[in-house]
Design a binder for these strands. Sequence first.
RNA 1: GCGCCUGUAGCUCAAUCGGAUAGAGCAACGGAUUUCUAAUCCGUAGGUUGCAGGUUCGAUUCCUGCCAGGCGCGCCA
Length: 549
Amino acid sequence: MNPREEIIKQLKKITNLKEINLEIPPEGLGDYAFPCFVLAKTFKKSPIQIAQDLAGKIKPTKLIEKAEAKGPYLNFFVNKTIIAEDILRKIIKEKNKFGSRKHKKEKILVEHTSINPNASPHIGRARNALLGDFIVRLLRFQGYDIETHYFVNDIGKQIAMLVLGAEDKQKITFNDLLNLYIKINEKIEKTPELEQKVFELLKKLEEGDEKTKKRFRDIVDICVKGQVKIFRELDIKYDKFDYESDYLWTKKTVQVLKELEKTGKLFMDEEERYVLDQKDSNLPMESPFLVLTRADKTSLYPLRDLAYHIDKKKSKSIIVLGEDQKLYFQQLKAALTLLGKPSPQPVFYSFVLLETGKMSTRKGNLVLLEDFMKEALQKAREEIKQRHNNIDDKDAKKIAYGAIKYSILKVTPERNVTFSWKALQFEGDTGPYIQYACARINSILRKYEKEIDEKIDFSLLKTDEENNLIKLLSNFSEIIKESQRTLKPTIIINYIYNLAQGFSNFYIKCPILKADEGLQKARMLLASCVKQVLENGLSILGIETLEKM
RNA sequence: GCGCCUGUAGCUCAAUCGGAUAGAGCAACGGAUUUCUAAUCCGUAGGUUGCAGGUUCGAUUCCUGCCAGGCGCGCCA
C-alpha cells in the first residue's frame, strides 16, 4: 500500500464517505490534503472545526507521519523515505512501462489526419495528426491494442477539380499540386461553367470508367505519398489507409441507401436527390436534413462516410476532427444510431489562424507544415553549431521536431492558435528544454561509468529538491490516468515540464558525482528515474531524447 | 438570426469534475559559470481572469445577459 491509499483508507473509515478526493497542497503545507468542506453539512460544523477533529483521529503509521489541520484543510505529511524507496524501486523495475496501468487488451480503432489529398498539408492539419498520434501513443502506452486508420478522401469535388486542373499537364510532382489546386479554384470561380466539367468527371468516375479512375488514382497517389512522407518524417505512422472510393466500388454506399430506406426517413427531394430526414434526431439546426446524393445520383461525402463508419466494425473507435465537423458529426452519429450502428468518440480541435487572417488551401493563404519543419531544422542546426563542431542531422531533427510537436500539443485543443514564426523557441517551456534535462542526465550517467545501484540508503534523499522530484515521480500514474480520461496532451506536457524544471533545480543545488559515495549512489538512482519518467512522458508525445545536446 | 467553442500579465500559454496566496515561459531589468552541459539557474517587475449580474462557505471554473474572436447551420468534405 502506498501512503495515498492508506490516507484514503483511514479517511473513509473515519468519515464514512465513499469517495475521498485528495489534493496536493501548496508548497510546504504537506504532501496530501483533504478539504473538509464536503463534511460541513453532514457534521453540522464548520470545516475548520472538522479538520481539527479529524486531525486528532488520524493514526500515525509507518507511512503517515502526521496529519495537521490548517484552516478547512487536513494536511498529511508522509514518510518520505518510504515513498522514495517505493517509487524509485518501481520505476527501476517497470522502466518504460512505468506509469501505465495493467489491464486486459482491448482493441481500439483511431482515425486521424485523414486530410484531403489535394496538396501539401498546412500547419493547421498538423494539429489533427499530432493530436491523433498523441492519442495513439497514449493508449498504446496504456496497453490498448490500437489500429491507426487514415481515411483517404480520394473522391469528390475537390479531387475532381484537381484532376481537371492537371488535365493538360505532362508530369506532375507533389510540389506542383498546391499551385495547380489554387489555379483551378481561381479558374472555376471566374468561369463557373467549368464546374459542369467537374461534375461530369465525377459522374464518369462513379460509373466506373477505367480511364477516369486511373486519372484520379494517379493524382491521389502522388498526393498521398507526398503527405504521408511528411508525417512519416515526424514519426507519425498509420496501420491502414482506407480509400473512400472503395465504398463505391463495393456498392456499400448503395447498401447504406437501402438500409436507410427501410427506416422510412429517406426520401427523394424535388430535385431528385436522396435526402435523409433527421427531424426526429434533435439536431440544433433549422432544417435537419442530410443530403446523400446529387441529382445525378453521384454520392456525396456523408453517404460514403456513413458506409465507412459502418465498415469500421470495432466496438470502440476514436476519431480526430476539426471543429468545422462538429455539427456534421452529430448528423453522422444520428444517422448511424438510426441504423443501429455505433459511432466513434470524437475529439475536436480548433483551427490555426494566421496573423494575416484565416488559412485556406484553396486561396493559397497558408503556411505549409514542411516549411515550418525546415525552418525549425535550420534553427536547430544553428543552435548545435554554436555548441559543437559537427552537426549530427539526426540530432537536429530530434530537436526541431520535438520543438514543433511540443509547441502544438501545448495548446489545449479547443483553443484557436494564431501561428507565428516567432513562436518556435528552444528555451523555456519547450521541447528542447525537456530534452536538455535528459541530455544532462545522460551526460552524468556516462561519467558515472557504473551500474545504477538500487540498494541505497533512501533516507539520504532529503533536500527540498530531492523531495520535490520524488513527489512528482509518484504522481505520474495519476497524470497518465487523467490524460487518458480527457485525451488532452496538455496534462502530460505540464507534468514533464514541471519534472524537468524540478530536475534543473536539483541539478544546480545537488551535485551528484561530487557527493560522498552513499549520497552519490542515491542521487544517481534518483536522476536516472527522472530520466526514465521524462522519457516515458516524451514518448507519449512522440518526442525523442538525445545523448548529448 | 440560431447553435457550439474560446477570451487569464505587454506577448504565448497553464491552472488535475468548484478549493488554500491565479502559475510558467518569452520579452524587460538585475544577478549566477576555477563546478556533473548557461538550450540552465536565482531575483525584480508585470493581473479588476473580456464586461455586468447571479448561485455558495468559496468562482478563471457553474448559471443568465452583453461584448469580441473562431466554427457551423442542403447538393464542399
